[in-house]
Amino acid sequence: MQNGQAIVRVEGLHKSFGSLEVLKGIDMEVDKGEVVVIFGRSGSGKSTLLRCVNFLEDPTEGTIEVSGVRLEGGHRTRQKREQIRQLRTHCGMVFQQFNLFPHMTALQNVMEGPVTVKGLDEGQCRAIGIETLAKVGLADKADEYPIRLSGGQQQRVAIARALAMEPDVMLFDEPTSALDPELIGEVLSVMTSLATDLHKTMMVVTHEMGFAREVADRMAFFHEGVILEEGTPDEIFRKTQFPETKRFLDAVL
């Protein structure tokens, strides 16, 4: 798949929290339009990788490149902070806990990025907002506050909020883990349509193996801070190489 159109490039990524090394040298490239599912046991570093990509965590060591913005890990300087902000506008992030702004309506949540960060005018953003909410099937909930939406609806608004910035890559950090089982489907189907209809580049940390099998172009199994096994869903599911991967798949399937 690596044909030089990489949107995200991760090189030699290390991340430590104090003396605990969570990521022990990760190299990964994600091409335009590619959907990569990252899976593995909790504590294996998969969320940390995602959070390092948009610098919610500062990499201890290594290089991150998103849409041509290339940044080294380590100490934050003033100049770097500005570059981080620029890099983040290329990444849309969807959190496990949704993290919608509770004091704003669904539409205001979606408009917030374009208005505040991109500085576009309100009317234009309103149109973007409604259009984006329609993409996640929630145009009729535009004026609702998050608290009045179900978990699944909140997560779809959160996806719309990220999408409205027109990011080059969408980062999903266990987007369905906080949801009741009956609400997971609606979120996964929105994510599927992002991949298949809008051809979004996506990095998805999830335990939803059905989604992975159906939508992922590539899967990466994280184990103790490294990528132990990587391949197409077919390779991962049918020709599993490592016993750790096999054990994990047996446990979640």
């Binding site: 902000r85 983040r88 506008t89 849309g92 959190f95 993290n99 702004f101 917030e112 960060v117």
Partner: peptide
């Protein structure tokens, strides 16, 4: 909650914007 701050960061907001808006 810290998640609010992270959501604002992830959108690319500056410290000032994050404080004022979120």
């Amino acid at each position: 909650s810290h998640g609010q701050s992270e959501a604002a960061d992830a959108l690319g907001m500056s410290y000032r914007q994050k404080m004022r808006r979120v």
